[in-house]
Design a protein around this nucleic acid. Sequence first.
DNA 1: CTGAAAGCGCTAACAA
DNA 2: TTGTTAGCGCTTTCAG
Lengths: 350, 350
Amino acid sequence: MTSIHDVAEATGVSTATVSRALRGLPNVSPRTRELVRAAATQLGYVPSPSASGLSGGRHHAVAIVIPSTARWFYVTVVEGVDSVLRRENYDTFLVILAATATDRERLFNNALLRKRADAVIALGIDFTAEERRELRTVGMPAIVVGSPVRGVRSVGIDDLAAGKLAMDHLLALGHRRIGHLGGETEWGMDHSVGQDRSQAWRSALRNVGIEPEPHWYALGGFLMPPAKAAALEMLASEQRPTAIFAGSDEMAFGAMLAAAELGLRVPEDLSVIGIDDHDWSESFGLTTVKQDPRDQGRVAARSVVDELSGAEEVTDRVTTAAVTLVVRRSTAPPAGQSEPDGRTSTRPPG
Amino acid sequence: MTSIHDVAEATGVSTATVSRALRGLPNVSPRTRELVRAAATQLGYVPSPSASGLSGGRHHAVAIVIPSTARWFYVTVVEGVDSVLRRENYDTFLVILAATATDRERLFNNALLRKRADAVIALGIDFTAEERRELRTVGMPAIVVGSPVRGVRSVGIDDLAAGKLAMDHLLALGHRRIGHLGGETEWGMDHSVGQDRSQAWRSALRNVGIEPEPHWYALGGFLMPPAKAAALEMLASEQRPTAIFAGSDEMAFGAMLAAAELGLRVPEDLSVIGIDDHDWSESFGLTTVKQDPRDQGRVAARSVVDELSGAEEVTDRVTTAAVTLVVRRSTAPPAGQSEPDGRTSTRPPG
DNA sequence: CTGAAAGCGCTAACAA
DNA sequence: TTGTTAGCGCTTTCAG
């Protein structure tokens, strides 16, 4: 395990100079720097993060915490985060965090956050006031991906607006009986994402004078299987909706699968729209409100890296990521109305 | 940042004793141990991994490397790994590794593997001889999840057997024209998983005297969208297969979606079988060869943790995980043959 | 521009 | 059973 001493010896300079040279600090003669660099690569030297972390206080690692690996959004953000972190030579700690209080407590009392990572990127977590205070105290850069959290930087879409975009599309098509597949809210998790999207559904309906019926709303937990089950029930009802707005594409897939199982054609008998633009949505022919989680991950990572590099308070407190409507084959005017254009209606892919 | 000194002072013992007491080492009086423990929690002390890593050589972290986040198998294994690592108080480094040589080189020359992690768990990676030697040299425990790799411990299913199970099911149903959706093989990645499953398909066919036709085989890259595209093409051919064996459930979903798009009913017009038992397979009604990646992850993590705990060469070199056939609604005898039982055939969920 | 020295927080002999 | 003494490998003043 070659150490900084070996490089110093090989070069004939002090370890201090080696350290400076390798980290690109000023006040090192070009010649010396080159010599040191050459020796380092020649010897296959890499600095020990433990040692530099201990002495310098920077660990060159950031923790990314997600509630589960089961949702496309989370793992896709992780991929984005990882890509910039790797390029910047940071290592990535992955923390999969259940919603339980003990799990979260452990996280915050853990060495990981206190003495191991230089920053945290949290997904779908709603920090408590105390947690925020802790972060502040330790002076640890933190950013949330998802809906804004008071006092913490964040990047994410405007869920209300995204929901409105989806609903406007459905309403413009002529739908009035519109169902919704929403997410559940666990304590301290994902607080507003699901709520805001559901709220958008409710408001949009009321804005056109429709009071949403209870059985038009069901919980899909942001996962496909429970969403399918919920949709099955919703679609079995007497006055079933002519369209479903799902709070995520994965839940929308569930709706499409449910429709297929009931012999309902999409979009002839049922329109379906989601939010995300999941990697599979195009194959499903799903109309959706597209967001770019990979990019949000990159932005978040860039943000903490910049802050760690000393850039003074670079980013905005809350960065709003763009959304766009992507119309595919899962939405059309409700039965009885003529189609507005020549789109061919295919069989339901679900 | 309270340190071991604070605890020592508060307790009136030396730092060495604190260290011993907290780590549960022998030769500490029960009374002292209690005192130390109390002081530690009271002060909110947590040891610095950098410091103990530097002095002790154990970092209490393991690296898990995966080729991408886009495949259910990988992220699900990660979840299993993470769960036991967390319970054992290890932190998890996530490394997402492209197949490129430079990416892999960087991994091995990185501080991460050399001076930061105590062990590696690799998914879908085929270590080169040199890489294996490096691991050996550093004395770093390593385990592969997936198909066996020479000289490295591994846990995974028998892909040949899994493929045979799938094919036997289809053959027993009476299918003879059976197509296959296989995975691509990138350099150093996933070498045999895809190959073995494809091989199982080919062999099974030949064993019953059928020479697989070229257009019965297509590459799906282990991802749904390309698999769907491939299936679309395969099913458009004149003498299309009556059944498709997909190398993974995600690719099987693609086949089901393709069938639906072509107006083919599953299973009446086309049977589909996969491997995995993906979280969504039940909702798709997909017949599959079930494996348990979460558990494989747990086994892998347990294995390296045990080895790090000094257990001498505990686990077998290669652990074979179980597979079982799960029959659902996507398979049936080919058209023209009577159904063996009273299963109702539903519309294709894809 | 470079070196010497102190110290980051912990563990590991070696004594006591 | 417990304390003392060295480091682990690096960064960081402070001198020069």
